[in-house]
Each structure stands twice: as C-alpha cells, then as structure tokens.
Amino acid sequence: MAMQIFPSILSADFARLADEAARVPNADWLHVDVMDYHFVPNLTLGLPVVESLLKATGTPLDCHLMIAEPDRWAPAYAEAGVGSVTIHAEAARAPVRTLREIRKQGARSGFALSPATPVEPYEDLLGEIDMLLLMTVEPGFGGQSFLDMVLPKIRRTRELIDRHGGEIWLQIDGGVSEETIERCAEAGADTFVAGSAVYGAADPAAAIDKLRALAQGGVQDDV
C-alpha cells in the first residue's frame, strides 16, 4: 500500500502560496481547504485563488470543500482543473449526482465525514467515490489535536473499502503528525493531510519524507 502525503496550504503563508507550493516538491498532492463561514466557522479561500494556484504549480490539487451547498459549487472546481474534489456528507443534498458530476468533469470524487458521522450508512456510495476522507478533528480550523476516538472508525472504513473491492483512497485529515501518523496507517489509512507538521517544520520537504516513512513503518508493523 503506497503512503501519500498531502501538505495542507491552510498552514502555509497565504501571501506566498506559489512559493509555499514550491517548498514541497516531494508532495504527492497539495491539499486546499475551502471554507465559507457557513458550514464551518472559518473563512479561507475560494475558486479564484485555486485557479491562480493551478497556474503556479504542477503538483495536483486536492480541494476539500468545507462549504454549504457543495452540490452547487463542487463541479466548478473540477472543471477548473483540480485533480480531486471532496464534498462533505453533512452538507451535500444530492451526493450521488454531485460525485458523478465531479468525475464527469475529470476529477477524482471525494467524500468526507466529520468525526461524529458514522461511515456505515454510506457504504452504498462507495462505487461513486475515489477517496473517502475521515476527519480526525472537527472541521474548520488547522492546528487541532488528533482525536483518538476516530481510530476504530478508520479500521471499520478500511474493512468496508476492502470488502467493496474498489481502489478507494482512505484519507485522514486533522492532527496528523510524527506522533499520530503510524497509528492511522496501522488502522488502514493510506493518504494523509498534514498542515502544521509540514509547513511548521524548518524543512517542509524533509518533514514529508519523515511522515511518509513513519506511515510506511506503521503498515509494516501491522503485517
């Protein structure tokens, strides 16, 4: 199982996003948190900034839409050239239609669950999903502490994905660090969003290499 690290630009310098993207040449993708101050109590950036960032980096973008009305806005991000667009279960009113539209526009479809949202009711949606994102903090702010209570949910989700048989990435977002990433990998995650653990380091690229090695070690320990 390949371990992927997605640095979150939520922890980067917003005045220098192109430069910040260049500081992590070994990133698998760049994670972009889009917040609208409605679904979550925070406001970050939107489609115009994402479009500018697409022109400034060759690293694919993974846009996590923490917004109200994702059914309305998600297809536009895919159409703009974003590689992966994730909508929240708690906000989407027509998830199947929206996930299919994201794919139709050429992007990977992602589906996110907040910590208290169970995964089991969404098992029938796995055929529409390329990535399932489990929040390991409450959505809305970077720098929060990892919630250990989500670890059993990661294990259950891995079981559902394996039973389904599709190649679905299992992404973890929130509190990912050198202290937590091995446990998440051991539980079954393979894709990790890391904000302050990368951009708060003196050498962000070296931090990515360390996180990836630790995640791989967590998988090997579980074998």
Results as ranks from 00 to 15, higher is better:
Met1Gly: 08
Ala2Lys: 10
Gln4Val: 13
Ile5Met: 03
Leu10Tyr: 09
Ser11Trp: 13
Ala15Tyr: 13
Leu17Phe: 09
Ala18Thr: 07
Ala18Gln: 10
Val24Met: 06
Pro25Gly: 03
Asn26Trp: 01
Trp29Ala: 01
Asp33Gly: 11
Val34Glu: 07
Val34Arg: 06
Tyr37Leu: 12
His38Met: 12
Thr44Arg: 08
Gly46Trp: 10
Val49Glu: 06
Val50Ala: 05
Glu51Cys: 12
Leu54Trp: 05
Ala56Thr: 11
Asp62Trp: 05
His64Val: 00
Arg72Lys: 15
Arg72Val: 15
Arg72Pro: 08
Ala74Tyr: 11
Ala76His: 13
Tyr77Trp: 07
Ala78Pro: 12
Gly83Glu: 08
Ser84Val: 05
Arg93His: 14
Pro95Ile: 04
Arg108Thr: 02
Arg108Ser: 07
Gly110Leu: 04
Gly110Ala: 03
Ala112Lys: 11
Ala112Cys: 14
Pro118Cys: 13
Pro118Trp: 12
Val119Tyr: 10
Leu125Ala: 04
Gly127Glu: 02
Gly127Cys: 00
Glu128Asp: 15
Glu128Lys: 10
Ile129Asp: 06
Ile129Arg: 06
Ile129Pro: 05
Asp130Glu: 11
Asp130Ala: 10
Met131Val: 07
Thr136Trp: 05
Gly140Asn: 14
Gly143Ser: 05
Met149Glu: 05
Ile154Ala: 07
Thr157Asp: 02
Glu159Phe: 01
Gly165Ser: 08
Glu167Leu: 11
Gly174Ile: 03
Gly174Asn: 03
Gly175Trp: 02
Ser177Gln: 00
Thr191Phe: 10
Ala197His: 08
Val198Asn: 06
Val198Pro: 05
Asp203Tyr: 07
Ala205Leu: 07
Ala206Trp: 06
Ala207Met: 11
Ile208Phe: 11
Ala213Asp: 14
Gly217Ala: 10
Asp222Gln: 05
